[in-house]
């Protein structure tokens, strides 16, 4: 099914004189993950807040799971879950009580509530901490509990607003696995992130948001192809071979210390074959070969003309 779960047209939002969203269009197909990538202040969280009915847009239209966010907010609310960058948990309750609270508010009934809570505690590895106050939870545990609370009633569309910001690498990978699991079950996910590797890792499509505008939208590979910088790197056993090869491949640049040659290329099979054929014809042995396609860092830089994203990644 390729119906869209989220449909955004011409979305606008300003706070006073500051334009936060300026004519944003976005389509997220049902059952896919779309990453909204952008630096701090790009408008990612505002977009998610509008789509989850927390904030009213100034203009444009947005539907989530077929319901208009302004005209039918309750319809939207019934089908979504939001896990924000600030944990939406009740700090004065235990993990189990938090989940039970959600189950009651979703009207699951006493018996199903109890089963569902047990299930989620196991799935999110929170069984041992279930009866402990949240003050004793680590950042990763809180984030897992937060997501578990969102999933009490299996929403159709889930918004994850910077789900791994501030988590250690292990917790990050756990979170990624959970998101993949959700998508495998058919949930639609809109994820905001400032981590390029996260978008690359999880998303089917990436929309790059910068200064309140979508500046690019496509699959991770499509975005990478947008920018120059791809190349093939060849290493040779000795200097003679290196220089012969350098003579054959005119556009290449030479690195005498590494005995390496860098050949600009789009990274495609055809370009690679051409390079290898000409080396074969000259009977040159290649010691090592690697293909470098531009990463999202390059994409980001090329699209926004800034390097903020690299900063944000550290």
């Amino acid at each position: 099914m390729t119906t869209s779960a989220i449909e955004v047209r011409g979305l606008r939002k300003s706070y006073g004189a500051k334009v936060v969203l300026d004519d944003v269009d976005l389509t997220v197909n049902a059952g896919t993950v779309t990453a909204l990538l952008g630096p701090n202040g790009a408008g990612k969280t505002t977009t998610v807040h509008i789509l989850s009915t927390l904030v009213r847009p100034d203009g444009g239209a947005a539907t989530v799971a077929g319901c208009d966010v302004v005209r039918n907010p309750d319809g939207v609310r019934a089908q979504i879950g939001l896990t924000g960058q600030f944990s939406a948990v009740d700090n004065l309750l235990t993990g189990e009580e938090n989940l039970l609270l959600m189950a009651r508010l979703r009207h699951l009934g006493a018996k199903r509530s109890a089963t569902r809570v047990t299930e989620l505690l196991e799935q999110f590895d929170l069984v041992e901490a279930a009866r402990k106050p949240l003050a004793t939870y680590s950042g990763g545990m809180r984030r897992r509990l937060d997501l578990a609370m969102t999933l009490v009633a299996t929403p159709r569309v889930i918004f994850l607003d910077e789900p791994t910001t501030g988590l250690d690498p292990r917790s990050r990978h756990t979170m990624w696995d959970i998101v993949r699991g959700l998508v495998a079950e058919g949930t639609t996910v809109l994820l905001t992130t400032q981590y390029l590797d996260e978008a690359d890792e999880l998303a089917d499509r990436i929309a790059v948001l910068d200064g309140g505008k979508i500046v690019a939208n496509g699959t991770p590979d499509e975005l990478k192809r947008l920018v120059p910088g791809g190349h093939i790197k060849l290493r040779f056993a000795d200097s003679t071979a290196l220089h012969t090869a350098s003579g054959l491949l005119r556009e290449s640049t030479l690195d005498d210390v590494d005995l390496a040659l860098t050949v600009p290329s789009d990274g495609g099979v055809h370009a690679l074959r051409t390079v290898l054929d000409s080396l074969d014809a000259a009977n040159l042995e290649v010691a090592d070969l690697s293909i470098h396609t531009p990463d999202l860092d390059d994409v980001f830089f090329a699209l926004t003309g800034r390097v903020e994203s690299k900063e944000a990644q550290s």
């Binding site: 319809g75 609310r77 019934a78 309750l93 609270l101 009651r104 508010l105 009207h107 699951l108 009633a153």
Partner: peptide, 28 residues
């Protein structure tokens, strides 16, 4: 009161759960 027959229909009837939800919030 709580409509046990439609555990997922919370959205359809947000208004009809006012009492049940208030009690849940009171417990909290």
């Amino acid at each position: 009161t709580i409509n046990a027959a439609h555990p997922h229909a919370a959205g359809a009837g947000g208004k009809s759960h006012v009492v049940a939800d208030s009690i849940t919030m009171l417990r909290r």
